[in-house]
Design a protein around this nucleic acid. Structure first.
Length: 292
DNA sequence: GCTGTCCGGAAGTGAAGT
DNA sequence: ACTTCACTTCCGGACAGC
């Protein structure tokens, strides 16, 4: 998979966005409800950010690691998956050095996060809102895909942790493996086919609907009407390029793709205004009153 | 005139679908 | 293997502001 471990610091733009958006929730989560994380979506299941690390299950630990892999653009293929059978109480006993040994350069960030979470039990590391749940689900879904594609297996080992017996792929995957073992995936695991990649308009929409992650890249001109503006057009293009692993992406190219959306009704023209676009009737998920 | 942005045609690409 | 999809790349032209 080869996500850069050095993050985005080498980019020619001083973008400080800490995450790059993966599959959108609407296209991925809703179409792919068999996602490995909590596919049943049971409302009573708490997420790692809702619990003190000491109370995390093995799955919470995996989800937390996944979150930081994505956040730090870490190359997951280099990870030792000894953590597969580690729950929160075990995790909390690890020293800084142990985390470094297990996770390499990511260990430092994980240690920091752990200390913060221990100090603020029950608080979310991001914010508390329904949107965080949204972000979390789609990050985890995407991150697991990254893990799987990178050759590392993440198999929830507890019933509450996700994966459904009614899901044949998940069941096959689970039954084909010894439990409680950390495995380097080779060919034994049937990787579920992921949907098509994130669409550009979804990528744009997801930046817009998460202002806490937006960092001034774009802004709503008129949220009700779906009108938005690029503030750092080249930076957004770079992020899009990063997501598509295309270092030569420019706003010029991105905007050409945006213009193709006019015909399809995903975007509508906003005449006379530079860097301004409007979501069309065939887009979704950007309007607060809409259900995703 | 130069620059930056927008526009849309045309051809190409790679992944996913059949 | 072939088709479809969603862009990506390149380009010439239009237009506005300086």
């Amino acid at each position: 998979h080869g996500v850069s471990a050095s993050g985005i610091s080498h980019q020619p733009f001083s973008v400080s966005v800490s995450v790059s958006f993966p599959q959108s929730l609407s296209s991925h989560y809703t179409k792919n409800r068999r996602c490995l994380i909590n596919p049943s979506g049971s409302p009573g299941t708490l997420r790692w950010y809702q619990l003190s690390p000491q109370h995390w299950t093995k799955q919470h630990v995996l989800e937390w690691i996944s979150y930081h892999v994505e956040e730090n653009q870490f190359d997951a293929s280099s990870l030792n998956m000894t953590c597969c059978s580690m729950d929160g109480s075990m995790l909390c006993q690890l020293t800084y050095d142990m985390l470094l040994a297990l996770f390499g350069s990511l260990g430092h960030r994980l240690y920091q996060s752990l200390q913060e979470l221990k100090a603020k039990p029950g608080e979310t590391p991001l914010a508390s809102s329904m949107e965080i749940e949204y972000v979390f689900i789609f990050f985890c879904t995407f991150k697991l895909t990254c893990f799987l594609r990178s050759g590392i297996l993440l198999i929830p080992s507890s019933p509450e942790s996700g994966g459904s017996d009614s899901d044949p792929e998940f069941h096959d995957a689970q039954s084909s493996l010894p439990t409680g073992r950390c495995l380097q995936m080779t060919t034994a695991f049937p990787i579920s086919r992921s949907p098509r990649g994130t669409h550009l308009w979804e990528f744009i929409r997801d930046i817009l609907i998460h202002p806490e992650l937006n960092h001034g890249l774009m802004k709503w001109e008129d949220r009700k009407e779906g009108v938005f503006k690029f503030l750092k057009s080249e930076a957004v293009a770079q992020l899009w390029g990063q997501k598509k692993r295309n270092s030569s992406m420019t706003y010029e190219k991105l905007s050409r793709a945006m213009r193709y959306y006019y015909k399809r009704g995903i975007l509508e023209r906003v005449d006379g205004r530079r860097l301004v676009y409007k979501f069309g009737k065939n887009s979704s998920g950007w309007n607060q009153s809409q259900k995703l």
